[in-house]
Computed example of a mutant assay.
Amino acid sequence: MPERTYFVTRHPGAVEWAERQGLAVDESLAHLDPSILAPGDRVLGTLPVHLAATVCEQGARYFHLSLDMPPEARGKELNADDLEACGARLEEFRVVPVKPQ
């Protein structure tokens, strides 16, 4: 099965931002069910760290939608222009939980 790209967001502004960037996305999801992932798949978005770790444990790649957001913008719905103004970018992370010793 070919590798797939999933964009996980519930924010319309993020979807529009991704379209402006010309990102090739196979499926946009409001919530990620990690059981759909296969090794080599790409997951884009802003996931809780434990879910990002699950993505990586399954051999998929995690690209975090990073922003340099001023404090006054926190908690507000951002549109694509706002995201661009906050320096929105995708950064790949490998998240690995630290096992208790």
Rank of each mutant, 00 (worst) to 15 (best):
V96G: 05
A60N: 12
M1A: 15
E27P: 07
H50D: 09
D26P: 06
L29Q: 06
L67F: 05
L29S: 06
T54R: 04
P2R: 10
A60Y: 09
L37R: 01
E84V: 14
A80V: 14
W17I: 07
L37E: 03
P48W: 07
P34L: 01
N79L: 05
Q58S: 01
A24I: 00
Q101H: 10
L23I: 04
Q58M: 01
Q101E: 13
R10P: 02
V15N: 03
V98S: 09
A53H: 01
S28R: 10
L83A: 14
Q21Y: 11
T9F: 02
E77W: 07
D26S: 10
C86E: 08
R94C: 11
F63V: 02
G59F: 00
G87I: 13
E84L: 14
E27W: 02
V49P: 05
V98Y: 11
L65P: 01
D33Q: 14
Q58C: 00
D81C: 05
P71Y: 08
E84Y: 05
A14W: 06
H64Y: 15
R10E: 10
A60L: 10
P97M: 00
V55H: 00
G45F: 00
I36V: 15
L32T: 03
D26L: 09
E27H: 07
P39E: 02
P12A: 15
V8P: 01
A30R: 10
E19S: 07
P12N: 08
M69Y: 09
C86N: 11
